[in-house]
């Protein structure tokens, strides 16, 4: 008995029609998840907001440091190698600083206490659960 015959003899009698349906649904699920979660395109600009209004939109093509004033002080956003991070922020818990480098379109770092945010935008606008 070849290994292929053995495998089909071991599996086929145990797969009922509904099991094939489940397998199909599961595979579709995996493929959709992969497409949905791995499709992040590279960003080409950073949208910086302060107090809910757009402060600046900067291209990622050249490295720079941007100082954004907020109610608590100045947040420093740095752009380097087409990546963006919040380099320093006066917020007490430093969540947005600890988030590190943002690279893909749709990624966002929020410094809520200082009302500063930086969001990466790609060539096409992606929807998420917040703005859908």
């Amino acid at each position: 008995m070849s290994s292929h015959e053995f495998i089909s003899a071991a599996t086929l009698p145990h797969l009922k029609p509904g099991d094939w349906l489940t397998l199909l649904l599961g595979s579709i699920c995996v493929v959709l998840l992969a497409l949905r979660l791995w499709s992040g395109d590279l960003a080409d600009k950073a949208v910086i907001r302060s107090g809910g209004k757009i402060f600046r939109e900067v291209p990622l093509s050249h490295d720079q440091q941007i100082e954004v004033p907020g109610p608590l002080g100045v947040s420093v956003i740095s752009i380097q190698n087409r990546k963006v991070r919040i380099a320093s922020d006066p917020s007490p818990r430093q969540y947005c600083v600890r988030q590190g480098w943002l690279q893909q379109a749709g990624e966002i770092a929020l410094c809520l206490p200082n009302q500063v945010s930086v969001e990466l935008a790609g060539s096409r606008k992606k929807y998420d659960s917040l703005n859908y």
Binding site: H14, K16, P17, G18, D19, L21
Partner: peptide, 8 residues
């Protein structure tokens, strides 16, 4: 159970 087995 006619359609779905332990695999499901």
């Amino acid at each position: 159970p006619r359609w779905f087995g332990p695999v499901s």
